[in-house]
């Protein structure tokens, strides 16, 4: 990262980073329990990894936090705010930023346009004020575009601002996705497999970047990632899911030694696993 993180970050103190408490949440799809009474807490300013074999319910957990899937039971609290008590599109303004597992950029739009989408709930103005280009609207638009560009620099995609996002390499698109999540000015950032499909050196860069985000911005990061090297290297705490249940929740060193976790990971190729729900 050669960018200027110092300029890109408002002082960490201005962000009131609060703990994210996942309390006994369950998510159900018809017959299957994708999440079964899962609890954990993301402490402020930490990198908290959420790991588990394919289909363990990690993305489902993200979707529950961002209100895409309804909770069958349980609560999700960000500080004092119950995330279930606000409509889905208000989550961003409560300080939750999310990057997606499958790239969810607007391919035809430019990089800066994509990242500016993250500023949506921080800005105002409807059709008319943009149609007539009201001076105050344009002024705020420029101000926010500057900030979005700063964030892109921070993520190392500042040289692509005016290219269609769909034309960027996979790795750069992942970075744009993260830039957009950061543009929300979150206090908690949800990263779903940021290093998926990346080679060793790109993965190392990504891990550096995630650490930078925590240290420069002082925000919490909930990280889903299959690359164990990355996870164990940067996570402050790890929660392990398997078949929707919480297997372990501890510091990385302890989790790595947990026999149940080892069994879940080693057994993930067994045929019998595929059958039992």
């Amino acid at each position: 990262m050669t960018a200027t993180p110092a300029a890109a970050s408002p002082p960490a103190a201005t962000r009131n980073v609060k703990p994210l408490q996942i309390e006994d949440i369950s998510v159900r799809f018809g017959g299957i329990l994708a999440l079964d009474s899962v609890s954990f807490t993301v402490a402020p300013g930490t990198i908290h990894a959420l790991i588990g074999p394919n289909g363990a319910g990690k993305s489902t957990c993200f979707n529950a936090i961002t209100r895409i899937y309804p909770l069958a039971s349980g609560r999700i609290l960000l500080g004092d705010n119950d995330l279930a008590s606000v409509p889905g599109h208000r989550i961003a303004s409560l300080g939750v930023g999310r990057a997606f597992q499958n790239l969810a950029l607007v391919d035809s739009a430019t990089v800066i346009d994509n990242v500016m989408l993250g500023r949506y709930s921080l800005t105002k103005g409807g059709f008319l004020s943009y149609a007539v280009r009201a001076p105050w609207t344009m002024k705020s638009e420029r101000r926010h575009a500057d900030r979005a560009a700063e964030i892109c620099d921070f993520l190392g995609v500042g040289q692509h601002l005016h290219r269609p996002a769909g034309m960027l390499s996979y790795g750069d698109q992942k970075r744009v996705d993260i830039a957009r999540a950061l543009a929300v000015e979150p206090t908690i950032l949800l990263l779903d497999e940021p290093a998926a499909g990346m080679n060793a050196s790109e993965t190392a860069e990504m891990s550096e970047l995630i650490r930078d985000i925590r240290d420069e911005l002082g925000i919490s990061i909930l990280l889903v990632e299959h690359d164990m090297g990355l996870v164990m290297g940067i996570a402050d705490r790890v929660t392990v899911l398997d078949f929707g249940r919480r297997l372990a929740d501890d510091v990385p060193a302890a989790v790595q030694k947990d026999p149940e976790v080892i069994r879940a990971y080693l057994g993930s190729d067994d045929d019998e696993r595929q059958e039992t729900p």
């Binding site: 979707n63 209100r67 889905g88 599109h89 208000r90 709930s121 943009y130 638009e141």
Partner: peptide, 23 residues
Amino acid sequence: GRVGRGWRAVRDNEAMATVMGVS
């Protein structure tokens, strides 16, 4: 501007649009 960005997000991915704050 903001309106168009919201529309394009809704067009391409409603779940993503919601997470980004678009109703």
